[in-house]
């Protein structure tokens, strides 16, 4: 066949790389670029500015705030003045409590939200029933749910998880729905033409086709989960990073506020990096497309 001549060199060039090779390659590329160093410089610059404002020049309005040096000293102290540092079990108890709450809420929101969103995108009738409801409930701020949540659930634990869940849930449903709608009509036609039955359309077109949006949605929903969690914990908590921040404020233990805030930031960032990682594993086609 005449086409052989053309097929061979291209076939050799397009050898499928495995995902580790790609990750390593990307990492090396990243380290060679200026990006990581500029990232670090930006962070360092911010800390320096904060230090100058609060601790060095003691600029009005800023002088009352805890500075980076004081907070860091407290954080690494074996005998912290306010009882929270890397060496105190309390610190980890707060972290653990918050992480568990977010995890419960996030998993629940994903397990309910993704199928719901897929279904809404798949069946127009179902969407017609549910979409207005979703659009009315979604803009209600989490704080507005607090009273109902407390009335409804027996303990404070359940109501905090519920609040966290709500924040996460709506973002997941909406993004999943958008994901289904983003799938080009031509893939549905192709699938039907190839003899696909409804369940194939669902599992082989709708599900994989919406995954990129679903994972963007999960990252957003993780952000909302932390946001709602802290709100919930500030109102009614006994443990947790949100509670720690509010309590330290009341007890005038200002460096602890900074410790808890930075901890929240780092954990939040790690959790969305984790989601991205899982997403990349499930969507090799997207990863490989990007490194073309």
């Amino acid at each position: 066949m005449t086409t052989n001549v053309d097929a061979l060199p291209q076939a050799a060039e397009a050898k499928a790389p495995n995902s580790w090779t790609i990750a390593l390659f990307n990492l090396r590329l990243w380290l060679k670029s200026s990006t990581p160093y500029l990232n670090l410089l930006g962070l360092a610059g911010f800390v320096l500015l904060w230090y100058l404002l609060t601790e060095y020049f003691k600029v009005p309005y800023f002088e009352k705030l805890p500075g980076p040096v004081a907070s860091f000293r407290e954080w690494v102290s074996e005998d912290p003045a306010y009882g929270i540092s890397l060496y105190t079990p309390d610190y980890y108890q707060h972290i653990g409590t918050s992480v568990m709450r977010v995890l419960k809420a996030f998993v629940l929101a994903t397990l309910l939200g993704v199928p719901l969103g897929l279904f809404m995108g798949w069946k127009k009738i179902f969407r017609d029933y549910t979409f207005p409801l979703l659009e009315t409930l979604r803009p209600i701020p989490m704080l507005a749910w607090v009273p109902l949540s407390i009335l409804m659930w027996p303990g404070r634990e359940a109501s905090i998880v519920f609040l966290t869940f709500l924040g996460s849930f709506f973002a997941t449903v909406l993004n999943t729905l958008l994901g289904v709608e983003s799938i080009d009509e031509v893939y549905f036609r192709a699938a039907h033409s190839l003899g696909a039955k409804p369940r194939h359309v669902f599992f082989k077109i709708i599900l994989p086709g919406s995954l990129p949006f679903v994972f963007t949605g999960l990252q957003i929903s993780m952000g909302f989960a932390w946001f709602s969690l802290v709100a919930g914990e500030m109102l009614a908590g006994e443990y947790g990073l949100g509670y720690l921040i509010w309590n330290s404020f009341i007890l005038v233990q200002y460096p602890v506020i900074i410790i808890a805030m930075v901890t929240l930031g780092v954990i939040g960032w790690l959790s969305s990096a984790l989601i991205r990682l899982v997403g990349d594993r499930l969507m090799q086609w997207k990863v490989r497309e990007a490194c073309r």
């Binding site: 052989n4 291209q10 076939a11 050799a12 397009a14 086609w285 490989r288």
Partner: peptide
């Protein structure tokens, strides 16, 4: 004449 690409994705 399309051998060697079966494990590639269409974008590749």
């Amino acid at each position: 004449g399309l051998m060697g690409i079966e494990n590639n994705y269409p974008s590749e």
